[in-house]
Amino acid sequence: MKIAAVQMVSGPDVAANLATARHLLEDAAKRGAQLAALPEYFCLMGMHDSDKLALAEVDGEGPIQAMLASAARDLGLWIIGGTLPIKSTTAERVRNTTLVFSPDGERVARYDKIHLFAFDNGRESYDEGRVLEPGCEPTRFQAGDIQVGLSVCYDLRFPELYRGYAGCDLLAVPAAFTYTTGQAHWELLLRARAVENQCYVVAPAQGGQHENGRRTWGHSMIIDPWGQVLSVLAEGEGVVVADVDPARLTQVRQQLPALAHRKLG
């Protein structure tokens, strides 16, 4: 299966972001992709964290979800819809949610980001817990012949989540890594997750200077189960594509059967 990672530099205008996402998904389909993944916050990088609260959608309704469903159906794609704000049990918090749509436009999976990012180096400060409510359930789904495990951004630092996806063919990591943390750890962690779980990784990211002043690292990439980066885009809007090859998965797992050698957990 040919897969695509979509890179964006989203801003505070939801309609503009949705139009850009649709255009890039069309490009992915033209390049032969059967599955495409959008980045975290593809629909909104607001001027303030609290902007997510006003634009949060009810689960199953809203223009963001409608765009994802129609794009999947019109383009015949499996779409991993980055993340969007979904209303939670309290008005002061939202869920940072990945929704997956099949090529017939049906929603087939939902994953709510479990680990919430916090960082303060004296120059940059972030705390997602101020507006986000964490999820608690890992989620995997079947896309044709491949099984996919879902995660989001900061989840990447918690390998126990991915161990729970043992046996998956592909791990998805939509993200909006900061420039500082991305430069230091993004590729390192992605390749580690691919190698230790002997599976492909698709990592669509935000990549550039945003209207709110934030700079994201980008470097959307697709990685094979041996840890080889198959395709990467450093910055700016665009699409990278590569193949998920069942023969390559089998080869890696047979020549080094590390998962079968596990003694703990």
Rank of each mutant, 00 (worst) to 15 (best):
A36G: 13
A36L: 08
A36T: 09
A36F: 12
A36S: 14
A36Q: 09
A36H: 07
A36C: 12
A36V: 08
A37V: 05
A37P: 03
A37N: 00
L38A: 04
L38D: 03
L38K: 00
L38Q: 05
P39K: 08
P39W: 12
E40K: 12
E40G: 13
E40Q: 15
E40R: 13
E40V: 09
Y41A: 14
Y41C: 15
F42K: 04
F42L: 10
F42M: 15
F42I: 10
C43P: 06
L44H: 11
L44M: 10
M45C: 07
M45A: 09
M45N: 07
G46R: 06
G46H: 03
G46E: 13
G46C: 07
G46Y: 05
G46I: 04
G46N: 04
M47Y: 09
M47D: 04
M47C: 01
M47Q: 08
H48T: 09
H48F: 15
H48G: 03
H48P: 03
H48N: 11
H48E: 14
D49Y: 14
D49R: 15
D49G: 05
S50V: 15
S50E: 10
S50R: 12
S50F: 05
D51P: 01
D51S: 06
K52Q: 06
K52G: 06
K52A: 10
K52H: 12
K52Y: 09
L53E: 05
L53R: 14
L53C: 14
A54T: 07
A54C: 01
L55T: 13
L55R: 15
L55K: 14
A56T: 03
A56K: 01
A56C: 03
E57H: 01
E57S: 05
V58M: 07
V58G: 02
V58I: 09
V58A: 10
D59M: 14
D59G: 03
D59S: 09
D59W: 03
G60M: 00
G60K: 02
E61R: 12
E61F: 12
E61K: 10
E61C: 02
G62R: 02
G62P: 02
G62Y: 01
G62E: 03
G62A: 08
G62F: 05
P63F: 06
P63R: 15
I64K: 01
I64N: 00
Q65R: 03
Q65I: 02
A66T: 15
A66W: 10
A66K: 15
A66H: 13
M67Y: 08
M67I: 00
M67C: 08
M67V: 02
L68H: 04
L68G: 14
L68S: 07
L68Y: 07
L68P: 00
L68D: 08
A69G: 13
A69I: 08
A69S: 15
S70M: 11
S70W: 10
A71L: 11
A71H: 04
A72N: 00
A72S: 14
A72W: 02
R73V: 04
R73P: 00
R73H: 08
R73C: 09
R73L: 05
D74R: 07
L75I: 07
L75H: 06
L75E: 09
